[in-house]
Design a protein around this nucleic acid. Structure first.
Lengths: 156, 156
DNA sequence: TCCTTAATGATAATGATTCTCATTATCATT
DNA sequence: AATGATAATGAGAATCATTATCATTAAGGA
């Protein structure tokens, strides 16, 4: 019953309502949490955090809504080779489009977003080319570099 | 007991032996299978195929060795948003370095490798830059485009 | 052939994610 | 503000890929 849901960015709610989705407390809680961090959170972490906003929330709703948000492009879902997915807001004040460096030994993740401009041009060409050739309607892309972080490459 | 393991590319075995790994029947079976396909196979698929080469093989060995092969760079492990990983040989006669188009609706995967040359130059610069800045020793990269395939984009 | 020990197979355990279904809450309409 | 259709929920069971355990086997150098 109790709920500490704060008011959120209007555009997110419009995005949901345009699709006939209701604005529920679990959804507000999840979005609040994602808006307050830059980290990639697991469903469990989001679940625990959501309980402090809306104690009655269930884990199933966390998964259901993360899937919904991912489907409608509000959230990005990542797999960094752990045995669980990670999520973050696709757009918003806290989030900048970025890619990842993944240490295959300790699983450390570094986000980077610099020098993105020459990348944009490259990706624009590539997406146009691929769309035409394969008939795909491309919505997003992921670029991950995998290797060893400084610590792990010394330790080997 | 029975075993139909064929002789394999020498370099792969050298790669294993250099690391003190033994050449076992399960390992030979897995590598045979991966060498004969261009597809991204699941552990289950590899398990069933391996049984026709070496009937006594256990599922645990499939997982253990796929992890080993991934660690030493012989195999690439992918997650396409299904609930299971997929694997393919990192290098070899059948395999060409490529990236993916993933349909987020029906999970269709298209491999593409054309026009890879301008990508190489772009990636070289990017990897050098990131290595210097973050101290990462970058070994590989993944570029995936996510969207809707032709069928699914019409159906919506 | 012998010996060391890496690797294996069988199977139990784990744990993230999904499913089921009765109940509840959202929100357009009145 | 009350109503009603139904989207969404919470609890917990079910699923299923992956890992861990451990006694046994086999690779490969001596």
């Amino acid at each position: 019953m109790a709920s500490k849901v704060k008011s959120d960015s209007k555009w997110i709610y419009r995005h949901l309502q345009d699709r006939g989705c209701r604005i529920t407390k679990p959804r507000q809680a999840i979005l609040n949490i994602l808006q307050e961090t830059r980290k990639h959170l697991t469903a469990q972490t989001i679940y625990f955090a959501a309980q402090s906003i809306y104690p009655d929330v269930g884990l199933a709703s966390i998964y259901r809504n993360l899937e919904l948000f991912t489907d409608i492009g509000l959230v990005l879902k990542y797999d960094f080779g752990e045995n669980q997915a990670r999520y973050e807001l696709a757009q918003g004040p806290q989030s900048v489009h970025h890619h990842h460096l993944i240490c295959k030994n300790c699983n450390k993740i570094v986000d980077y977003s610099e020098a993105i401009d020459d990348e944009k041009e490259f990706l624009r060409r590539r997406e146009k080319n691929l769309s035409r050739k394969y008939g795909f309607k491309i919505e997003s892309h992921f670029i991950d570099f995998v290797g060893l972080c400084e610590k792990c490459s010394k330790r080997r």
